[in-house]
Design a protein around this nucleic acid. Structure first.
Lengths: 145, 145
DNA sequence: TTGGTATTGTAAGTGATTGGAAATTGACAG
DNA sequence: CTGTCAATTTCCAATCACTTACAATACCAA
């Protein structure tokens, strides 16, 4: 896919090597778009393609890919970091609904506050290029209980 | 709720971890607003969510949360300490402007999208109780360079 | 193909936190 | 003063998410 090829180009550009471990990690993210993978998740999934991989390499790879902007780290306060592939345009309108009861995370794709960015720009002299919103509350399953 | 989220932010800020035990304790206080819970009370209540928790951890957690100002200790001379969530400040909708260049974080106090919460509620069947927004961009100092 | 360098897996090391149990404290009775 | 008992703290070994040391190995440009 586009992003996978981009990522490979970025690696080469910066003098990093394209190893089977990194290739497998990229593939895994491409195959799991929209999911928020923990390091353990990635480890498990990548292991299917590349059984020898060690957990340390997974951590290193995720760090590297985050630095290159290929994936984004996000925290849902569940005790571990989670990542997803950063899709340049979708990313801009990509927000989360976090259930305070069960911890489930849903996504909302919507441009919520484009117009507010302008307001912020004027009031705070801050040049906004992106925003991210978390809504906290109770998902349908939990609020029915 | 807001105070729960604030508390989580404070923990993170000070380098403390948000463990299941701490999460359960915060939830317990949120669900028992206005009550004055003894350590034993907290132990019993938290045990429902987190049965493995030990009494020592409860004492430690209460100490920690008191230090962060999330809960208040009060004495009724009944032989044990009691606590309640400190509710003094109300639902502050404070959000953040994060500079991508220097990393500076400004706060904005503003209710940005109350009306959008209703929309989310209908479309996603998600009962929103709070939201948090991050704006990414460049602060005035950095964008002038 | 080759050689220098990046990268790897293993295993040991972080630092914060934990449960259980033992130790300490303090109020009070005898 | 001494013993008792419950509240609270401390000790300790273990756990968790993550990082690092290091020697062996794999990329990839020449």
């Amino acid at each position: 896919m586009q992003r996978q090829e981009d990522a490979k180009a970025k690696l080469k550009e910066k003098g990093y090597k394209l190893t089977p471990q990194r290739r497998a990690t990229l593939e895994t993210f491409a195959e799991n778009r929209g999911k928020h993978l923990s390091t353990e998740d990635v480890y498990t999934l990548v292991k299917e393609k590349c059984p020898e991989i060690g957990i340390a390499t997974v951590y290193r790879t995720l760090q590297l890919l985050e630095g290159l902007g290929v994936i984004n780290k996000m925290s849902f306060d569940d005790g571990c970091s989670r990542y997803e592939m950063s899709g340049s345009d979708e990313d801009h309108h990509h927000h989360h609904l976090i259930c305070l009861s069960c911890g489930e995370v849903q996504e909302v794709e919507e441009d919520l506050l484009e117009h507010l960015e302008e307001k912020i720009r004027e009031k705070n002299h801050f040049d906004v290029v992106n925003h991210r919103v978390k809504f906290f509350g109770y998902c349908s399953k939990c609020s029915n209980k």
